[in-house]
Structures are given as structure tokens and as C-alpha cells.
Amino acid sequence: MEPFTRVTGILAPLDRVNVDTDQIIPKQFLKRIERTGFGPFLFYDWRRNGDFILDRPAYRGASVLVTGANFGCGSSREHAPWSLLEAGFRVVIAPSFGDIFKSNSFRCGLLPVEFRECLLNGWDEVALTLRDETEIARYEADRSTELPRTA
């Protein structure tokens, strides 16, 4: 496996959430017994429809994929990271990943980088939590007044 020290390359955006492994590599291409040969079928169905973002000239040869939450959810097929790798990707950046996809990726040399949603939206964590103000206030109202106070 190629050692992971530095990745320099084009960054391609795929603005979708919950990209499942069936989209990454459809089932009809799983019949090979080799670990190779999956690259050309990456995102097969989407590419077939034409004007797929990764096929635009600007993103040709991209090595970093930036995408939405829960990338790689669904089946456990390791063919998904294999096909990404073979298509030239070394890194996928997303707010979260399917669990199995994530551990598969580590095993075959694709680096999944989790980039929290609050960073993407420019929220700090406090702001994120304060969206739960109603719940916090409700909890506080129910909380025993006998618990210790410092002031």
C-alpha cells in the first residue's frame, strides 16, 4: 500500500448526503474476483446520466473528494473504497461516514476525514447546542433545587 504522507491534488466537490455504497459502485460490478478493475464504474449510474460533476474537465484527476454526511452508508462492500482509490481518490472529506465504509477505507489506503457539520455551516459548538435551548430550559426547570449551588 502506498504510504500516506502527503496528498497534493485537485479537490472535487460532490454535494450530496447519504451517498450509499450502491451509488459508489453498483452491485452489477461486484462480480470480479480481483481487487482491481472497479475504477471505471465509480458512480456508474450518476455518470451515465451525463453532466456528472466529477466528469467536468476541472475535476479530472481529482484526488480529494469533499462530500456530505453519512458518506458510504449501506452495504459493506469494500469495492466502494477500492473503486474510489482506483479512480484516483486518496482522501474523502465528509461530516460523517458509514461505519463499515470508514473502517474499510483505513484498511485499503483511502483516508476518510471527518469534518464536523458545525464547521461546514460555520456554527461553533455553543451555537449548535443553543438550538436545543428549549430542551435545556426544560431540563433545568425539572432539576431538583436541592442540588448544590456555589453562589
Binding site: E125, V126, T129, L130, D132, I136
Partner: peptide, 9 residues
């Protein structure tokens, strides 16, 4: 975060 919200994630 705790100072602002009294909560922890």
C-alpha cells in the same frame, strides 16, 4: 461550551 450552555456533548 459548558460556561455558555451548562451542557456537554
Amino acid at each position: 461550551h459548558v460556561l455558555a450552555t451548562q451542557c456537554l456533548r
